[in-house]
């Protein structure tokens, strides 16, 4: 959470990884905000709780003929881990995965950074943020 006077944006995200361009756009918004010194709060729910799964495996690219190492596939978990590096202190990245959504999907093994929460966290985030963007799915 930010202190008074600092800017922060709250984003609610619903899309699972590798489903639509929305995930990429949302991650671009978070990355840009953090690089501008704006803190970011994320409430991930439904399929989006899978974005931070630690075990996401990279893959080679048969089109380009590249190996796993050469391809260096940007999994969502790896991307978000980078965001946590950017948002380690000030600006700060806070990421809450909806607990019920996690349990439904057995999706509880995350990278370091996210914490478990619920809709109350989204309400608190939005109350304390400069602005809130709710990104629904279809």
């Amino acid at each position: 959470m930010t202190t008074s006077g600092e800017k922060s944006i709250t984003i609610a995200l619903m899309d699972p990884p590798y489903e639509s361009g929305t995930t990429t756009t949302a991650l671009r918004i978070m990355d840009t905000a953090l690089r501008k010194g704006i803190s970011v709060n994320v409430f991930a729910y439904e399929g989006a709780v899978n974005l931070t799964m630690r075990g996401q495996a990279p893959h080679p690219n048969p089109v380009k003929g590249t190996s796993i190492e050469e391809q260096d596939h940007p999994s969502t978990a790896k991307f978000i881990a980078g965001l946590f590096t950017l948002g380690a202190d000030s600006p700060k990245l806070e990421w809450v995965n909806c607990g019920l959504c996690v349990d439904e999907r057995g999706a509880g093994e995350w990278i370091d950074g996210p914490r478990r929460g619920g809709p109350g966290d989204l309400f608190k985030f939005s109350q304390e943020s400069t602005n809130t963007l709710i990104i629904g799915t279809r």
Partner: peptide, 18 residues
């Protein structure tokens, strides 16, 4: 670009709809 979008979103009085 997203840089400009973030500037727009980082204003408390702005109402953002996706």
């Amino acid at each position: 670009d997203v840089d400009e979008l973030v500037d727009l979103l980082a204003v408390s009085s702005v109402k953002a709809i996706w």
